[in-house]
Design a protein around this nucleic acid. Structure first.
Lengths: 342, 342
DNA sequence: CCGCGCATCCAAAGCGGTTTGGGTGTGCGC
DNA sequence: GCGCACACCCAAACCGCTTTGGATGCGCGG
């Protein structure tokens, strides 16, 4: 079932059929109706490869799974983010092309992807403070939006980010306000921009409260439950253990809670905990009205939807200066925080 | 940079350049070398859309995010599975096309996807016991492999599955062997084939041990930590609470542990727990030598790699009868199981 | 009656590759 | 010296769609 066969069975030229189906003028009302009816009847669907070759638009967006995920953990945030972005794409008729970057020459991989014509734009995730991919993509002329930011990148580029620094400063301030002075931070992997910003927010709020940041209370690691557990166990064993924890993910928080309870202590009374909550669908923070943890929350799925919309509009209006969008995390008061014990 | 311009700059015809680059005969050694060198120098990469149009192969595999994930949870298994499959695809030069199925007419969505020519094959996830998609895809002639099985599907089709029934029967038998007689099952969502098989394994092993399965001890729900916690709390409150738990995911197990410890009991002594472990990278069962839970384990990422390989070979050899592969879960002895208290 | 504008429709030229079906030139056997 | 096999190369058709630049026929004003 091609455009040509459809045209023949209608006694029309491919040109007219194409124009009729794509809503162009220059086609009689009656003819258009007849074409549409026949197309539906025959179950005709244009071949996207051919269309894409002719129009130059791929009707697809690239997302990239970083190469080193082969060895490291697959970021659990990706799935929800992509699901959110996918909703927006689907509504606009776009597909997602997921490429696993081959190890080694990352730059060459992105270059090939851009040249390939398989995608009209790229969504970049998990940026580092000095992320070379941004300059690379800008140079390639492929529209892109970054989920997160690259703090050390000077040139303008499109991004959508949660205000990590402010969220973690706020959480820290909340804890100092409750009298805590030894506030541990169990952060995500070092080298990730979001982790850098969270650490900065934490440090700033401590300094602000007249507390000297203690490097022994700050950890950077891939965000697993086990990490939260072991780190909290170790910290609890210190001569001066922290009275409060700040965690970068709910999984870490769950681990901390385990360690805390195993030590016979209770969260919210003996030890306080504020976590960031990405709103992952399979890892809810309790139920809507009854959170388990005090948290800063920014649903990553919603951010996926937003970032995708930004990218689509960047593709639709080339030449426009890149847009940026900073999302404020919501504050969720839960039972895991309380006044510092003395 | 097209094939034509490259050919011109080499003083050759597009035909010869194409043959030289694609490793065909009929090209002099020296010419081939010259072409390859120039292609590399100029950074030439063939346009996949054009190539795909000409060859009829898309060099892409479809994965589908179910429509209802818009409202329900995004299966955390998807990410690791896709990462595994992606490795295999990437090595063979294939991309992943992720489509979000529009709500409503699922069949039409798959039909369009098949007709579109965007993909050479499809990987189906999360099948139901009577899954219509299988007959549909078989009828469409699009190669596909199912991750999991559709138990009520009679016609042959390609699948890769973990032996859910056997794994859960084994786990149950292990518990009855320890003297447990009230063994709760906190399963995944009802309607999923894997959940059905796990429930069957559990029930069979109970019957085998002369224990009448108690419907009050079996739950079906999306697999979250919170589900594990609340279910375990409720069950603990029964007049005759279970002395052992079987959980379908590590997240559920973590929730159960929380409820158990909150009740002042200890896992492995007062209450036993065996969980299934999908080997998700961000949710490890302790560390390699020191598991947290006794578990049946089958790394889903590895299964992604395998399923992708099966699909690629199904695409390469059309007409071959579909292959199937049953993976045996490994048994991991952890500290969460012990003799039944009396 | 002529010429012009308008509404429709179409032929043909791409898009950037692959592939079929010859061409050309050389070396070799007879 | 002729014919043939062989190695090498190329022109052109094709994949299925979009889009440019006309063609055609009609009604209408001058």
């Amino acid at each position: 079932m091609t455009l040509r066969t459809l045209a023949e069975s209608l006694g029309l030229s491919p040109t007219t059929v194409s124009r009729a189906l794509n809503g162009y003028g220059d086609v009689a009302q009656e003819t258009r109706a007849r074409v549409q009816a026949e197309a539906r009847a025959q179950g005709y669907a244009p071949n996207p490869r051919a269309r894409s070759l002719a129009t130059g638009r791929a009707m697809a967006i690239g997302h990239v799974i970083p190469a080193d995920s082969r060895h490291e953990i697959v970021n659990p945030v990706f799935a929800d983010f992509i699901a959110g972005a996918g909703e927006t794409y689907a509504a606009a008729g776009y597909e997602i092309v997921l490429s696993v970057m081959p190890e080694g020459d990352e730059a060459e991989g992105y270059r090939r992807l851009a040249r390939s014509g398989r995608i009209d734009g790229l969504l970049l995730q998990a940026p580092r403070p000095a992320d070379r991919r941004i300059a690379l993509l800008a140079g390639l002329g492929l529209p892109f939006v970054v989920h997160g930011r690259a703090s050390e990148e000077a040139a303008p580029y499109g991004w959508l980010d949660m205000d990590n620094r402010r969220a973690f400063a706020r959480a820290t301030r909340h804890l100092t306000g409750l009298g805590h002075r030894r506030i541990a931070l169990l952060n995500g992997p070092e080298g990730m921009d979001f982790a850098t910003r969270r650490a900065a927010g934490h440090a700033a709020a401590l300094t602000e409260a007249g507390i000297a940041p203690d490097p022994a209370l700050v950890r950077h690691e891939p965000m697993t439950e086990f990490y939260g557990y072991t780190a909290a166990r170790e910290l609890t064993g210190l001569a001066a253990p922290p009275t409060a924890y700040l965690t970068s993910s709910l999984l870490i928080a769950v681990g901390v809670r385990r360690a805390v309870e195993e030590a016979g202590l209770r969260l919210g009374r003996d030890v306080s905990l504020v976590t960031h909550d990405d709103g992952l669908s399979y890892l809810p923070n309790g139920t809507p009205g009854r959170p388990l943890f005090t948290a800063t929350q920014a649903p990553v799925r919603e951010m996926g939807r937003e970032a995708a919309a930004m990218l689509l509009s960047a593709i639709a209006e080339p030449g426009r200066p890149p847009r940026t969008r900073l999302i404020e995390a919501e504050w969720v008061e839960g039972p895991s925080t309380g006044a510092a014990p003395r």
